[in-house]
Amino acid sequence: MTDATVNFDGPHGPKPKPIFSGRNIFIYGTLAIVSAYYLLPLYIMIITSLKDMDQIRGGNAFELPIGPDFEAWVKAWSSACTGLNCDGLSRGFWNSFQILVPSVVISILIASVNGYALANWPFRWSNIFFTILIFGAFIPYQVMIYPIVIILRELGLYTKLTGLVMVHSIFGMPILTLLFRNYFTSVPEELFKAARVDGAGFWGIYFKIMVPMSLPIFVVAIILQVTGIWNDFLFGVIYTKAENYPMTVQLNNIVNSVQGTKEYNVNMAATILTGLVPLVVYFISGKLFVRGIAAGAVKG
């Protein structure tokens, strides 16, 4: 709640505090040190990727690169090897992209309709299903991995990208459904009732009232899913095979491969490249990202 503004002449508000009070130095000092610590890995990643191997062997990890050298980036993107494939991270990037787009669209479509049905059209036992769904978000994935392998194999989708899209859509459902259900519950009921009186049905209200009113929550859901799916490793490594590996799996294979000499600059360049998409999403989205991650904890 914002404080009510008080209008009267002369100085008002609390007594101005000195800028360099001990309290301020303590607060800003601590925050600055902690921030430096948090930024350190990013800094090291970037400078290491811009060095050549000679400098890495000779110097330490903190010193600046002699001349920025983007060769490691080029190599990481287009010619780093994982096993027999030597076409770099680009393959993983496109795989991740092809997994990401349909997964995000499908999971949000399903979850928003689910949330809408739960919030505005509850039916018998709908809350029981919802509770099970939320419990599912906490169950360790390890318990469900293998039966899903069998189901995907039966459907002929095991090791294919489509199968992974399905898995992401399923496991994105609990948190997204919660997000949408809570949002739709907060939409005034009068609106819904008025639309009902005017003869709008399930889909009519959904498309004409709920969706246009809840664009911010759709953006939050997109942010949540893009970062979540892009960062996934477990499902990628289980439900796809070598040429379909998403970027995270490929990155791990490049960096932790036991063959050949370790090229730390290429490894770090590859690491940044993989982290780039969620980072960009994060820095662009700002407060919406916070809202997304808090969705799991702050219940309506």
Partner: peptide, 23 residues
């Protein structure tokens, strides 16, 4: 400050692990 303190959360565990393996 909040943006700086929260950005690692946007990164995957794989990226986190690899960076710290290097550091």
């Amino acid at each position: 400050f909040r943006t700086i303190l929260l950005y690692p959360f946007a990164l995957s565990f794989i990226v986190t692990g690899l960076v710290w393996q290097w550091i």
